[in-house]
Computed example of a mutant assay.
Amino acid sequence: MTGDDEFWQPQRWNVELELFFADAPAWADLGDMAWTDSMGFDFDPIGPERSAALVQIAAFIESLPQVSAMWGSIPVGGALGLERAD
C-alpha cells in the first residue's frame, strides 16, 4: 500500500554522506590516484563473511597512504542527505 495507509513508509532511501577534511600534505595527490578497486558496499551477513570483507577493506586502506591518512583524520564538517528512492 502507498498513500492509503497512514503508516506507510518508503522501502528504499537514498542516503548521501559528504565529509570535509582540512587540507593536509598526506593526501595532496588523492585526486590523481587511479581507483582500480571498488570501495563500494558489502552486503555479507554478520559473521565470517563480513569479517573477511572487513579484513580485505583494512588491507586496501593500508595499501594506499593517502587513504590511510584520511581514514585516521577527523572531519572538520559534513553534510547528510536523505530522500525517498521509491
Rank of each mutant, 00 (worst) to 15 (best):
E83K: 11
N14W: 08
D32C: 08
N14L: 08
M70T: 01
L19H: 06
F21H: 08
E18F: 06
A53F: 08
R12K: 10
V15K: 02
G3S: 14
Q11M: 04
S73C: 02
S63T: 07
L30V: 12
P75A: 00
W13E: 15
M70L: 15
A59E: 08
L54V: 04
P48D: 14
R84L: 08
G31N: 13
G40A: 11
A22H: 01
A79E: 11
L30F: 12
I61W: 06
R12F: 06
A26W: 01
P45G: 02
L19P: 12
W13M: 09
F20R: 08
G72C: 05
D44K: 14
A79I: 05
W71V: 01
R84F: 03
L19V: 05
V55S: 05
L19F: 07
D32R: 15
W27M: 03
V55F: 04
V76T: 13
G40H: 01
A34M: 07
M39I: 00
I74G: 04
I57L: 14
G77A: 06
A58C: 02
M33T: 10
D86L: 09
F41Q: 12
M39R: 13
P10A: 13
A85S: 11
W8Q: 07
I46P: 06
D32Y: 06
W71T: 02
V15E: 09
W8K: 07
L64V: 11
F20V: 11
D23F: 06
P65S: 03
G77E: 06
W13T: 07
A22W: 05
G40Q: 03
N14Y: 10
D23M: 05
T36P: 04
W35K: 13
L30D: 04
F20K: 05
I57G: 03
V55L: 11
G40I: 05
A52I: 00
F21W: 04
V15T: 13
D5C: 01
F43Y: 11
A26M: 03
P10C: 01
S68V: 01
G78T: 03
L17Q: 07
T2N: 09
V76S: 12
A34R: 14
W8S: 10
P10T: 00
D37P: 03
P48K: 06
D44M: 08
F7M: 07
E16T: 07
E18S: 15
A69W: 02
L64M: 07
V67Q: 01
G47C: 08
V55P: 02
D32K: 14
L80T: 07
Q9C: 10
M39Q: 03
W8H: 09
M1G: 15
F7Y: 15
V15W: 01
F7I: 06
A53M: 00
A34Y: 03
D29C: 15
V55A: 11
W8C: 08
D23I: 04
G47V: 00
V76M: 05
F41D: 13
R84D: 12
P25T: 07
D23H: 13
A28K: 14
V76R: 03
N14E: 12
A53Q: 12
S73Y: 01
N14G: 04
A22E: 15
R50E: 00
A22C: 10
S68G: 09
G72S: 13
I74E: 08
D86S: 09
